[in-house]
């Protein structure tokens, strides 16, 4: 393993500043009204018009949770490769990179919340629906390995369409690879807190998203394993309206709480405080 020095001193290749203030319009998928990004940052991406939860880009999520200027990014130079020559994958990757400015579907690093240090990964649904391939698997695994070594809690903010099929079986194996790192982190007695956001499905649900000590879910988020359409086609069953929502999860015992965005920061700070890392 690479020798590392100090909490924030791991040598990384910087790729510009973690947060930009670029202004652009974001459309609410519910009421179709467009808002300036700065307006949505102020409202925590809750639509000022209709109150719907708008999906939050990974970096903006971190900005909403982390103490000011406390976030340091890890492994920003990791990106996906089309090693199977899978039809259309190369184009999809280029499009996702251009549209988001990201190199992969997850942002990882360390931050402070309420003064307390915490490792964090946040997935970005704009990047090929945050599907989990080798790049995502490697970044999450490294983050857990780092957190175990530095004795840090981990916050994971999930959203994902599942394993990235364009990377074939190698993407399925990322589920076991990340889980191995989560297991070591857990056995070291460290906290792993998951915040499920819309949508968290498939292989993500069948691995790291469901391996937390504490599982929080955003109101109304879609969280499930099999797709609704697949279930309807396979079983012909009529599914309840709230099927596979956060509320459905809470009702069936698979989440600890529904976490509204207004409470996100303070709740995470409280959980970190309860799990004992000193404020710095």
């Amino acid at each position: 393993m690479v020798k590392r020095f100090g909490l924030f001193s791991r040598r990384r290749v910087p790729r510009g500043v973690p947060f930009s203030d670029e202004e652009y319009e974001v459309t609410c998928s519910h009421c179709k009204k467009a808002f300036l990004r700065s307006v949505l940052l102020d409202s925590q991406f809750i639509c000022p018009e209709c109150g719907a939860y708008i999906r939050i880009p990974a970096r903006d999520r971190i900005r909403l949770i982390a103490d000011k200027d406390s976030f340091t990014e890890f492994d920003a130079g990791i990106t996906s490769v089309d090693f199977l020559g899978f039809p259309g994958y190369r184009e999809k990757l280029t499009k996702a990179k251009d549209a988001t400015g990201e190199l992969s579907a997850v942002v990882t690093g360390v931050m402070r919340v309420g003064g307390r240090p915490c490792a964090v990964y946040v997935m970005d649904s704009r990047f090929i629906m945050a599907s989990m391939g080798s790049a995502v698997g490697e970044k999450i695994t490294r983050l857990f390995e780092y957190a175990t070594e530095m004795r840090l809690p981990v916050l994971g903010v999930t959203c994902s369409g599942g394993a990235r099929m364009q990377e074939g079986i190698v993407s399925l194996m990322q589920m076991a690879k990340c889980s191995g790192a989560v297991k070591r982190h857990s056995e070291a007695g460290l906290l792993y807190c998951v915040l499920l956001t819309d949508p968290t499905t498939g292989g993500m649900t069948a691995s790291v998203a469901m391996e937390g000590d504490i599982t929080l879910a955003e109101p109304g988020a879609l969280v499930g394993f099999a797709g609704r359409r697949v279930i309807e086609q396979t079983t012909g069953a009529e599914l309840p309206k709230n099927f596979q929502t956060s509320e459905f999860l809470l009702e069936h015992g698979f989440a600890d709480a529904i976490l509204p965005r207004e409470k996100m920061r303070e709740t995470i700070a409280l959980l970190l405080r309860q799990h004992g890392k000193e404020a710095v």
Binding site: T79, V81, F83, M173, Q174, A176, G180, A181
Partner: peptide, 9 residues
């Protein structure tokens, strides 16, 4: 499992 994965860094 740790060594499975192909990516660019």
């Amino acid at each position: 499992f740790r060594r499975i994965g192909i990516f660019e860094e």
